[in-house]
Simulated scan of single mutants.
Amino acid sequence: MGEIAEVSDVEIQALAERVLGEITELLEVENKYLSDVQQMKMDAHIKAMARRSLTGEGLPDFDADLFDEISAPAMRLSETVTAMFGNLPNKEALLLSIHFEMAKSK
Score class of each variant (00 low, 15 high):
Ala44His: 07
Arg76Phe: 12
Ala74Gln: 10
Val29Asp: 13
Leu94Ile: 01
Gly56Thr: 03
Thr24Phe: 04
Ile70Met: 05
Ala83Ile: 02
Met40Leu: 13
Glu17Phe: 03
Gly58Ser: 15
Met42Pro: 00
Glu79Thr: 06
Ala44Ile: 02
Ala83Gly: 08
Asn87Thr: 14
Lys91Thr: 12
Ala103Gln: 08
Gly21Lys: 11
Glu6Ile: 09
Ile46Cys: 10
Ala72Arg: 04
Gly21Thr: 08
Pro73Trp: 02
Arg51Gln: 13
Leu88Val: 10
Ser78Met: 02
Ile46Asn: 06
Arg18Val: 08
Ala93Met: 01
Lys106Arg: 13
Lys106Ala: 03
Glu101Met: 10
Leu27His: 00
Ala83Thr: 08
Glu28Thr: 14
Gly86Trp: 14
Glu79Asp: 05
Ile12Glu: 14
Phe62Gln: 07
Ser35His: 04
Leu15Asp: 07
Thr80Cys: 02
Lys91Asn: 15
Gly56Trp: 07
Ala93Tyr: 01
Val19Leu: 06
Asn87His: 11
Glu28Ile: 07
Glu3Met: 10
Glu11Asn: 14
Asp61Ala: 15
Pro89His: 10
Gly2Glu: 15
Ala103Cys: 13
Asp9Thr: 05
Glu101Asp: 07
Lys32Glu: 11
Gly58Thr: 12
Glu6Asn: 04
Val19Met: 09
Ala64Gly: 06
Val29Ser: 12
Leu96Cys: 03
Ile98Phe: 01
Thr24Pro: 04
Val37Trp: 05
Thr80Lys: 10
Glu22Phe: 10
Leu59Pro: 02
Asp68Arg: 15
Phe100Ser: 02
Glu57Gln: 15
Thr55Ile: 13
Asp61Ile: 13
Glu101Tyr: 06
Gln39Asp: 04
Phe67Lys: 00
Glu3Ile: 05
Ala83Ser: 15
Asn31Tyr: 11
Ile46His: 05
Gly86Ser: 14
Lys32Pro: 01
Gln39Tyr: 09
Ala64Asp: 05
Leu88Glu: 06
Arg18Cys: 03
Asn90Ala: 10
Ser78Leu: 01
Thr24His: 14
Ser8Glu: 05
Gly21Cys: 12
Ser71His: 11
Phe85Ala: 09
Glu92Phe: 08
Asp43Ala: 08
Asp43Lys: 14
Val29Thr: 15
Thr55Val: 14
Phe62Glu: 05
Leu88His: 08
Val7Cys: 09
Arg52Ile: 05
Phe85Thr: 09
Leu88Pro: 00
Gly21Phe: 12
Lys47Ile: 12
Ala16Val: 07
Ser97Trp: 00
Ala16Lys: 11
Leu34Cys: 06
Asp36Thr: 12
Gln13Cys: 07
Ile98Trp: 01
Ala44Asp: 03
Glu30Thr: 04
Glu30Ile: 03
Asn90Trp: 03
Leu54Val: 11
Ser105Val: 13
Ile70Glu: 02
Val29Leu: 15
Ile23Glu: 08
Pro73Lys: 01
Met1Leu: 06
Val81Ser: 04
Val10Arg: 10
Glu25Asn: 13
Asp65Val: 04
Ile98Glu: 00
Val81Trp: 01
Thr24Val: 08
Lys32Tyr: 11
Phe67Pro: 00
Glu11Asp: 15
Gly21Glu: 11
Met40Tyr: 06
Leu27Ser: 00
Ser97Met: 04
Glu101Ala: 06
